[in-house]
Each structure stands twice: as structure tokens, then as C-alpha cells.
Amino acid sequence: MAVSSMASTSPASPTSPASPASTPLAGAPTGTHRSDLGLFMALAFGISWASWGTAMGLGGSAMTSPTALPYLFGAFGPLLAALVVRVRRRRRGEPVPEHAVRFRSRALAWLPLFLVATSATVLGAALLAQAAGGTALSLDGARDVMADAGGPAAFLVSMIVSGPLSEEPGWRGTAYPRMRASMGRLQVGLLLGVIWSVWHLPLFFIDGTVQNELGLATPSGMLFAVSVIPMAMLTAYAYERAGVVASMVTHFAANTTMILLDVHTPVTLALVVGLMGLVAAFLLTVSRSTPAPTAPMPEPPGAS
């Protein structure tokens, strides 16, 4: 979540007969999953942390030159890592991982639900915090944020690119299905959430980021870092239901709502963590998992 940074898939369509030697089974060996996962993690962290380390070395605000370039480039570490893993897999002639969720046009009907439900979770936490005596909700901060971004259109584009587009093809489209090969859905959601949270840590040391303004050693900063975990679980559920596009929508909704509502106080962040965590854990626990395909799957957009 670079806030600076719900139907199972149908079986694969029948394919023409082919010899066992020429037609790979769906899914790849566990060793291959681990190899690809290790490569993805090394590249995602390496690209992002090297770029953000450069930004820290340059000093200055993340939004001004020359710091802005390495800062922004660092957000694309997961996407670039996913592309490398995808090219590598295709060159080896391996099938799409068993738990990768293909894109289906009818899944688009779920996107408004993910958008509204995720935003409502953050809004509900903010309203509960206000009722408990916290900061009253106001649109003044939202107007300022959009004005600083160059207007509503520029703000929305930046929120789509920074986070959803730059991260989801990596964390959900690449890492998630490979981790699912040997772990349950809830376990993957939790573990990938911790990894995702650690990946964000350098942002706390770059001037001008939301994380830096909160401060890592403050209650708000620590709760922000923890909030990445239930968000990872919620985006994982969205991915399992409708693929990478759905996880991007969920990521976008959470980031955008938190920024527009200026979610930063410890009480509000704690309620976001609790409410989103309960919703995500419930959905991952009780909903039906994506069935394993019985034939080789076509290449799904965003999955590697």
C-alpha cells in the first residue's frame, strides 16, 4: 500500500489432445515456485530499497527534484520483479501457477462492490473514531490534497499508478499464487502482509512521505505499518475472487479513502486495523477458495 503509498474461477476450457510430453500439467513443481518466489522477493526489495536509499541519500522532499525520481521509481519494484519472473517462466515453457486467478470479463461486475466495501470499511473506522471523541471528519483536507496534486483527475491518476498498478501485479499476481502452493489462504494473507509492511519501511525515512510525517517510532507510525497486514488480507480476498484488477481496485479504495479522510490519529488507525482485519479474516475463512484447474490455464493478465 504505497500511500506515500468477490466468484471463484471457472474450470479451464477443454484443450485439444496432446501427448504428456508436450502438454504441461497446471501448476509448477514446488521447487520452481520457491525459485520464482525467491527471485521475485529479491528483485522487489532490491529495486525498491536501492531506489529509496538513493532518495534518502539525496535528501530533500520526495516530491521535488532530484529526490522525486528515485522515490517514484522505487514504488515500481514489485511490478518490475513480476515482469522478470513472468518472462523467465515463459522462456522455460512453464504453465501459470495453479492458484493464479485468470481475468474474466464477468468479474468486472464485482469491482464496484470491492470499491464501495473497502472505502466503507475505512469510513466506518473514521466515523467510530469521531463518535469516540476523535477528530471530526472534514472535506477541507481532501480539497487541499487534490489541489496539491494538480486537481481531482491528476490525484486519481496518481492514486491508481502509485500503489495499485505499481504493486498489485507483483504482490498478488506473482507472490500470492506461489505462496498458496504450500500454504492456506489466511496464512498467506498474514505472511504476505508482514512482508509487504517491511517493504514499506524505507519510506519512513524519506522526507515528504506520509510515513515520514507520521514517524516510525510513534503510535500512528507503528499502527500505519500494522494496517498494511489486514489490507494485504483484503486485497488477497479480492484477488482470489476476481484477479489482479480486483486487488488493484481494493488497494486503490483503501489508499484513497485514507488520504481523503486524513486518517492519521492512533485511534482511527487502530480502528481501521481492527475493522479491516475482522472483515478480511472472515472473508478468507468462510468463503470458497479458488478451485485448482484441471487443464493448463491460458495466460491471465497480471499473473505470472
Rank of each mutant, 00 (worst) to 15 (best):
residue 67 T to P: 01
residue 8 S to Y: 04
residue 101 V to K: 13
residue 73 F to Y: 06
residue 33 H to R: 13
residue 23 T to Y: 02
residue 60 G to Y: 01
residue 29 P to Q: 01
residue 1 M to K: 06
residue 95 P to M: 01
residue 67 T to I: 04
residue 15 T to V: 15
residue 68 A to E: 09
residue 36 D to M: 09
residue 4 S to M: 09
residue 75 A to M: 13
residue 91 R to Q: 13
residue 14 P to Q: 11
residue 22 S to M: 12
residue 45 F to W: 12
residue 4 S to I: 12
residue 58 L to A: 04
residue 88 R to G: 01
residue 17 P to T: 05
residue 51 S to M: 14
residue 10 S to N: 06
residue 100 A to N: 07
residue 41 M to Q: 05
residue 58 L to E: 02
residue 102 R to Q: 12
residue 33 H to E: 09
residue 66 P to A: 06
residue 14 P to R: 14
residue 1 M to F: 11
residue 50 A to H: 03
residue 58 L to N: 02
residue 64 T to K: 15
residue 57 G to Q: 05
residue 99 H to I: 00
residue 4 S to F: 13
residue 12 A to Q: 14
residue 16 S to W: 08
residue 96 V to P: 01
residue 37 L to P: 03
residue 69 L to P: 00
residue 41 M to V: 14
residue 96 V to G: 02
residue 60 G to C: 04
residue 83 L to N: 02
residue 12 A to E: 15
residue 60 G to Q: 06
residue 9 T to I: 10
residue 7 A to N: 13
residue 71 Y to T: 15
residue 96 V to D: 02
residue 54 T to K: 01
residue 87 V to M: 11
residue 33 H to F: 03
residue 53 G to Y: 09
residue 64 T to Q: 15
residue 31 G to E: 05
residue 86 R to T: 08
residue 95 P to I: 00
residue 7 A to S: 13
residue 33 H to Y: 09
residue 12 A to F: 02
residue 76 F to L: 07
residue 53 G to V: 04
residue 82 A to M: 03
residue 52 W to V: 01
residue 83 L to R: 06
residue 34 R to A: 12
residue 18 A to K: 11
residue 67 T to Q: 06
residue 79 L to R: 07
residue 66 P to N: 09
residue 67 T to V: 05
residue 89 R to F: 02
residue 79 L to V: 08
residue 94 E to A: 11
residue 59 G to D: 08
residue 18 A to Y: 03
residue 74 G to I: 05
residue 2 A to H: 11
residue 42 A to E: 06
residue 75 A to D: 05
residue 87 V to S: 12
residue 8 S to F: 03
residue 57 G to I: 04
residue 73 F to I: 14
residue 65 S to E: 13
residue 71 Y to A: 13
residue 6 M to I: 10
residue 100 A to V: 03
residue 24 P to N: 06
residue 62 A to Y: 07
residue 97 P to I: 00
residue 54 T to Q: 07
residue 6 M to R: 10
residue 95 P to Q: 03
residue 18 A to G: 14
residue 74 G to D: 01
residue 47 I to Q: 00
residue 7 A to V: 08
residue 5 S to V: 07
residue 66 P to S: 07
residue 5 S to K: 10
residue 5 S to H: 12
residue 20 P to F: 10
residue 5 S to W: 08
residue 36 D to I: 00
residue 39 L to H: 06
residue 6 M to S: 10
residue 89 R to S: 09
residue 6 M to F: 14
residue 30 T to K: 10
residue 27 G to M: 10
residue 87 V to T: 11
residue 100 A to R: 12
residue 25 L to Y: 07
residue 25 L to V: 13
residue 102 R to G: 15
residue 99 H to F: 07
residue 101 V to Y: 03
residue 66 P to G: 03
residue 81 A to W: 04
residue 83 L to Q: 08
residue 56 M to V: 10
residue 38 G to A: 11
residue 24 P to T: 08
residue 59 G to H: 07
residue 8 S to M: 11
residue 37 L to C: 03
residue 30 T to Y: 05
residue 29 P to V: 01
residue 89 R to K: 04
residue 98 E to S: 13
residue 36 D to L: 10
residue 24 P to G: 04
residue 51 S to I: 03
residue 42 A to K: 03
residue 72 L to K: 05
residue 64 T to P: 00
residue 87 V to K: 12
residue 83 L to G: 07
residue 100 A to Y: 02
